[in-house]
Simulated scan of single mutants.
Amino acid sequence: MANKQFGNTLRTLRKARGYTQQQAADLLGLKNKSTLASWEVGKSEPDGYTFLKLCRLYGVSDIYSAFNEMPPTAQVTNGILESYTLLRDDYKKMIDNMIFQLLDIQEKLK
């Protein structure tokens, strides 16, 4: 079973562009609108290529924000920041010093 929230987002994006299911299906080259309808109710999901076509059709330039997801790099960054907050103050100072040293080295290499 596919994700219902994913389907709801697809429906919202389609309606925001003013397309009926039939119009969107035609523009995507689908045989009929029932395929699109099954995606929108969460019964199935499009393949990767069709998903990219959907994003282009619906004017989605940032897939993560359109689907209320966090990019993988942001997840890592948030995890690092969360871990940093758990450190003792003396360890935080060590990390801060390392960061400043690396920034200095990076600047000198430019």
Rank of each mutant, 00 (worst) to 15 (best):
K31C: 05
D47H: 04
Q22Y: 09
E45A: 15
L27R: 14
T20C: 10
G18W: 10
N32L: 00
L27H: 05
Y49W: 07
G29F: 07
Q22N: 05
L27M: 15
A37N: 14
A25Y: 04
E45H: 00
Y49N: 14
A37G: 13
V41H: 00
E40D: 02
Q22D: 11
R17Y: 06
L28D: 04
S44K: 13
P46L: 08
N32D: 14
K43I: 13
R17W: 07
R17T: 07
L36M: 10
A25T: 03
L36A: 05
P46D: 03
Q23Y: 00
E45V: 04
L36I: 04
Q23M: 11
A37V: 07
L27I: 05
D26F: 14
S44F: 06
A37D: 10
A24Y: 02
Q23S: 11
K31F: 05
G42E: 02
T50A: 03
N32A: 11
T50M: 13
L36W: 05
G48L: 14
Q22F: 12
R17H: 08
D47S: 11
Y49L: 12
L30K: 03
T50S: 08
S34L: 09
G18F: 06
N32K: 05
Q21Y: 06
S38P: 00
Y19M: 10
S34I: 11
K31G: 12
A25H: 08
Q23P: 00
G18H: 06
D47T: 04
W39G: 00
Q21L: 14
K43Y: 12
G18I: 11
N32C: 09
L36C: 02
V41Y: 04
G42R: 08
E40T: 06
W39M: 03
Y49I: 12
